[in-house]
């Protein structure tokens, strides 16, 4: 078996194991949360008996380990259970399955993430490489200062500034980014433009600075000097001789930022009232909708694990020492 295939399998198994540990942590930390769904829904006035009956109906009276096993058993079969919301003391069950609830939201979030990534990653790489090429020039300083400013500004503020210019003053894009399943791709992109721009401004700095630093770090290597002394032009030195050796750290930072696009965008979603998974999770936490919270957290953890796995694989395949062993 090629060593890379072996490494990938190892990392995948490790990822599954990590996910298992994460599920334990999620479950037990939710156990430790004060209060429960029954009290939250029925309110202060509820009698002890009604709360107990309600808990029994939701299965909350079972011991924790039993509930955990049931939950994990369901998850591995793709069943994240029923949401608590929609159930009430009336006995009428209008609840929906977690997948039905989260699915469209997750799609929206992924759509926004892909849209942002397809702008931000090429932009960051371009800025990083050109900043390394013209390092210490005016261009380099402007790029650095600009990206640092956008990352240092709170994202809701960036969002409102963009909204002010592009929605209010010039009204190029809508300030409310409501997307619905029946919209065409063009309309979706149009209405998600401002949130995508906001997120781009937030994440581009990390990736751009790492690209620049990783390349500049290599420029002092003897093989770069050698390339120069062979008469290789400055831009080829960077693209052909420095960049191929710089992918590993760059990929790591890109993975980290892409993960952020899935798990950390709730503020931007709220500002633009974008129907993403972040808002769903915040609502679920507020209403103690435990199955939804658990599902969201597992999705977030899996996102981190998968993206980091991809970054690791990129690190391996761009390293000839690992790709072509002696």
């Amino acid at each position: 078996m090629h060593p890379i295939v072996r490494t990938v399998i190892q990392r995948l198994l490790l990822g599954v194991f990590t996910l298992f540990i994460v599920s334990l942590i999620i479950f037990s930390s939710i156990e430790f949360l004060p209060g429960d769904f029954g009290e939250a829904v029925l309110g202060q006035a509820a009698t002890k008996e009604t709360v107990a009956a309600f808990r029994r109906e939701l299965g909350l009276d079972l011991p924790a380990w039993q509930r955990y096993l049931e939950w994990v058993g369901g998850v591995v079969q793709g069943d994240f259970g029923q949401s608590f919301s929609g159930r009430a003391s009336s006995g009428q069950d209008r609840s929906r399955s977690v997948i039905e609830l989260i699915g469209p939201r997750l799609q929206n979030t992924l759509f926004l993430a892909v849209l942002t990534a397809s702008i931000a990653v090429p932009l960051a790489l371009f800025l990083g490489i050109t900043a390394a090429l013209y390092r210490n020039s005016v261009y380099d300083r402007v790029v650095n200062a600009a990206t640092l400013t956008t990352i240092a500004t709170p994202e809701f503020f960036v969002a409102y500034i963009l909204m002010l210019f592009f929605a209010s003053l010039w009204s190029l894009f809508p300030s409310l980014s409501s997307v619905t399943p029946d919209m065409s791709l063009g309309d979706r992109i149009y209405s998600a433009t401002l949130p995508a721009m906001t997120l781009t401004l937030v994440i581009v700095a990390h990736m751009m600075r790492m690209t620049r630093a990783a390349i500049i770090n290599l420029l002092a290597s003897p093989y770069i000097e050698m390339a120069r002394l062979k008469g290789v032009s400055q831009s080829k030195v960077i693209l052909r001789h420095a960049l191929p050796n710089a992918w590993a750290p760059i990929a790591t930072v890109i993975a980290f930022n892409l993960a952020y696009l899935v798990v950390g965008v709730v503020v931007v979603e709220v500002v633009f009232t974008y129907p993403g998974i972040g808002q769903t999770m915040v609502d679920a936490v507020r209403t103690r909708d435990v199955p939804v919270v658990q599902a969201c957290t597992v999705i977030f953890a899996a996102t981190y694990i998968v993206l980091n796995l991809i970054a690791d694989i990129i690190g391996i395949i761009t390293n000839p020492r690992l790709l072509h062993p002696r």
């Binding site: 003897p222 000097e225 390339a227 001789h241 191929p244």
Partner: peptide
């Protein structure tokens, strides 16, 4: 130019 350490002066990626 022929450098001191060939191991360092060859680009590991090519």
């Amino acid at each position: 130019y022929v450098a001191q350490s060939a191991a360092a002066a060859f680009n590991p990626a090519h």
